[in-house]
């Protein structure tokens, strides 16, 4: 068990090293990609800065809380996009039969699918995340490490949700863009000031569309730490991950290999 885990870790680092090497095959291109992504993210931040600058605060949230939200969500998304983005291609792999390639490897098929794609430009998300953390005004070592931890929990949440929507492809055809849109809808929910959701909206925000675990709870942990919030977040994220993995293997039982051929 431990030996398998060590082997997987070794393979993971080997793949990441190879991804970085591939990206730096053209150094200029790699740097430009990271910078473009950072500018892309900061332009979104600017939009919210203008809103907060005009309106002061929104239901108690100021730009500081928004900056913390950007720090957590950017770091969480960067981790997903760099190390586990392959799961978003599951519908495509199922449609063209290339899922077979991952099923016959001696390693865990889910692991191999997860690391099958990485977008190097998303290192720019980490850069944005750290810039936003330092702009938030909540700067201390304890807050920094806590931010890293909740970002990792955010990554687990994103990974689990994306895996669930990708697995719809086992049950219906042409679900690639449906999955993309559902995931985007979740991200959009999670990138808003959580203070706008009160009453019934808040219940919806923490249950049916659990974006509150990407915005409301992490920001509350960072600004007003309570162990119960941290426990709630960890419990929810790991539960969702467990459900997502079970759902993947349940769907996999329905998969009957590919038989597509193509001519041009």
């Amino acid at each position: 068990m431990v030996a398998d885990f060590v082997k997987i870790c070794k393979l993971f680092f080997y793949i990441q090293k190879s991804n970085v090497k591939t990206a730096f095959f053209n150094t200029g291109d790699a740097v430009v990609n990271i910078l473009m992504m950072t500018i892309n993210n900061l332009s979104f931040v600017f939009m919210w800065w203008v809103i907060f600058h005009n309106k002061g605060s929104i239901n108690g949230w100021t730009f500081s809380e928004m900056a913390l939200l950007f720090a957590v969500s950017n770091n969480a998304f960067a981790t997903y996009a760099l190390f586990a983005r392959g799961i978003q291609n599951i519908p495509e792999y199922i449609a063209n039969g290339s899922l077979d390639n991952y099923l016959v490897t001696p390693r865990s098929s889910l692991f191999m699918i997860s690391v099958s794609e990485s977008t190097f430009a998303n290192w720019g998300d980490y850069l944005t995340g750290f810039i936003m953390f330092f702009l938030s005004g909540y700067v201390s070592w304890s807050c920094f490490f806590l931010m890293l931890f909740v970002s990792f929990m955010g990554f687990i949440l994103l990974y689990a949700l994306r895996l669930i929507v990708s697995c719809f492809a086992f049950f219906a055809s042409d679900t690639q863009r449906l999955g993309d849109n559902m995931f985007m809808a979740f991200l959009t929910f999670g990138m808003q000031p959580a203070s706008i959701f009160t009453g019934w909206y808040k219940i919806l925000f923490l249950t049916i569309i659990p974006a509150g675990f990407l915005s409301l709870i992490p920001v509350r942990i960072l600004t007003d730490f309570h162990l119960s919030d941290l426990g709630l977040m960890m419990g929810y994220c790991f539960l969702l991950l467990f459900i997502a993995i079970r759902f993947f293997y349940f769907g996999l039982k329905r998969y009957t290999s590919g038989n597509r051929f193509g001519v041009r």
């Binding site: 863009r177 449906l178 999955g179 849109n181 559902m182 809808a185």
Partner: peptide, 11 residues
């Protein structure tokens, strides 16, 4: 492509 369209409308 109903799945795609419903995803768009949902978003």
């Amino acid at each position: 492509n109903k799945a795609n369209l419903s995803g768009l409308l949902f978003f």
